[in-house]
Amino acid sequence: MQFGILVNEGPYNHQASDSAYLFARAAIEKGHKIPRIFFYHDGVNNSTRMAEPPQDDRNVTTRWSKLAQDHGIDLVVCVAAALRRGIKDELLAPGFRISGLGQLVEMGIQYDRLVTFGD
């Protein structure tokens, strides 16, 4: 099955992005496909390579980048939500790109399921 994932909350402040990551990993392990993950609202804050969490904590952003690289996942950050929060192309971690909300709608149209992680 093809799953699309929508992440609506920022890292560390809220568990939504952790849950989304764990769901994505579990779905892939079960043989499902996750072609794209879309980051909206404060979820866009998952994408910045400027984040430096303490050494003894998980690094949410690099975890997304690795998952994307290992499994060919398209990590899309909403442009309007990103600009509002100061997320720019030059700040993006590997595997992320900025694009429009149309990319989210396409996920709903084309994939078997769209799963939202948020508050």
Partner: peptide
């Protein structure tokens, strides 16, 4: 919170896709 405002944006785009 910003959910209602940003949510409306998604609604409008989805309609533009003739869904």
């Amino acid at each position: 919170t910003v959910y209602a405002l940003e949510g409306l944006e998604v609604v409008l785009i989805t309609a533009a896709f003739d869904q």
